[in-house]
Simulated scan of single mutants.
Amino acid sequence: MTHHIAHKKVTWLELFYDLIYVAAISITAHVLTHAHHGAIDASIILKYTLIFVPLWWAWTGFTVYVNRFGKDDTAQRINYFVQMAFVIVMAASINVDFEAYYLYFMIGYVGIRLSTVWMYARIWKNGKSEPRSIARFLTLSFLVGALISFSSVLLPDDWKFIALYAGIFLDIVLPLIGRRILVRLPVHHPHLLERYGLVTIILLGEMILVIVNGLREETVTISTVVAALIGFVMAVAIWWHYFESSEHTAEEEQKNSGQLVIYGHLFMYMSLGIIASVVHYGFHHDLSVRNFGWLAWSGFGLYTLSAALVFHQRAKSKRQRVFAFYMPAGLLVVAAVVLLMLPTVTAVYAALAGCFVVQALLVVVGLRGKGLR
């Protein structure tokens, strides 16, 4: 009973922690809604990526620590609240004019990473045998990455961005290089999927917020009602596909480093940000039909590929491979043709929702075929 109560406390605190990221995620997705002359400038897409990656990695770093070593003690609770404060600093500094707010963004990111390093260092100092060796590896790896990123304050012009992202890149790559070390202490797979599922709900909530804002900002007409319905159907289809797949994957016994789940969700979360911007442009027709089609297909494609990576990594039988890889690949090809050929924004928007509905149905059919539903 005591263990169950402690777990509930950690779960509620984790949810509180996730909710602090809502503002940062919302603002980051909003970066893509700055269109000019019917197109999104390449620099905007680059900024979206450069902002999203450290935001995802900052959240992921502490989430994976809690998954392996977390316990509901005072030090961990304080660390949660310290990181929340740094997340607020990051969120306040997210802007299309990234250069002007760079210093605050960097301080927020490095603060989160150093507080995570401190938690790993505690395990290194006080832990035993295997957990201690893994904590030592991650402490040193993440400390080097954070210090490289922090060194960017000493550099001029674009060199500061190079240093910041060099540190982030090293931070992300070193666990991949050290995978053989990390598998000695596998992640708790169901808990990891639950944590990423909570953030997925937040991102789907961002889509709903875009729909609500679209209805509030525009005169209510048949066009805006249709746009809202299409966006809602799309959010429901993504929810259905994601959580049907996640529930099934969580039931499988897996003892590994969880890196397919961890890194695959980077692209999945980026895709959901893109799809939220698609919903925005479904109300505000600021993109040309062709550019809207490319944006829609990019979001769908990135989601489909990342979902295959995260949820269908263990497909072995022929039927499993058909539903896990071949049908999504075929749907991706069909989507490319349809979304880039339709004549109006509304038609592309509706077709994208249809692609997600078909994808959700494929999962349902696939699971029923395996006797799991």
Rank of each mutant, 00 (worst) to 15 (best):
L174S: 07
P175Y: 09
P175W: 10
P175R: 12
I177M: 12
G178A: 04
R179I: 04
R179E: 14
R179L: 03
R180V: 01
L182R: 06
V183D: 14
R184N: 13
L185P: 00
P186S: 12
P186M: 14
V187A: 14
H189N: 12
H189G: 01
H191R: 14
H191Q: 15
L192S: 03
L192C: 01
L193F: 09
E194W: 05
E194N: 10
R195W: 13
R195Y: 11
G197P: 00
L198N: 07
V199T: 09
V199K: 05
V199E: 06
T200G: 09
I201S: 09
I202C: 05
I202E: 09
E206T: 02
E206C: 03
E206I: 07
M207W: 01
M207G: 05
L209F: 12
L209N: 11
V212R: 08
V212Q: 10
N213G: 08
G214C: 07
G214Q: 10
L215I: 09
L215N: 03
L215A: 05
R216Y: 07
R216E: 13
E217R: 08
E217N: 12
E218T: 10
T221H: 12
T221W: 07
T221P: 05
T221R: 15
I222S: 14
I222W: 04
I222N: 11
S223Q: 15
T224H: 06
V225K: 12
V226L: 14
A227H: 08
A227I: 04
L229A: 15
L229H: 01
G231E: 08
F232P: 12
V233G: 15
V233Q: 05
V233K: 00
V233R: 00
V233I: 13
M234L: 15
A235W: 01
V236Y: 02
A237C: 09
I238Y: 04
W239I: 04
W240A: 14
H241N: 14
Y242A: 08
Y242F: 13
F243E: 12
E244A: 09
E244R: 13
S245G: 02
S245N: 08
S245R: 05
S245I: 02
S246N: 14
E247I: 00
E247V: 00
H248F: 14
T249D: 15
A250E: 11
A250R: 15
E251I: 00
E251V: 00
E252H: 08
E252Y: 02
E252A: 06
E253M: 11
E253F: 06
E253W: 03
E253L: 13
K255F: 08
N256F: 06
S257M: 06
S257A: 15
G258M: 12
G258P: 00
G258Q: 10
G258C: 07
Q259R: 02
Q259F: 10
Q259T: 03
L260V: 01
L260H: 12
I262H: 04
Y263N: 11
Y263P: 00
G264N: 10
H265N: 13
H265P: 00
H265M: 11
F267H: 05
M270S: 10
M270A: 15
S271L: 05
S271V: 01
L272D: 08
G273V: 01
G273C: 06
G273P: 02
G273D: 06
I274D: 07
I275P: 01
A276Q: 04
A276W: 02
S277P: 00
V278K: 02
V278L: 03
Y281L: 06
Y281W: 05
Y281M: 07
G282P: 07
F283G: 02
H285T: 06
D286C: 00
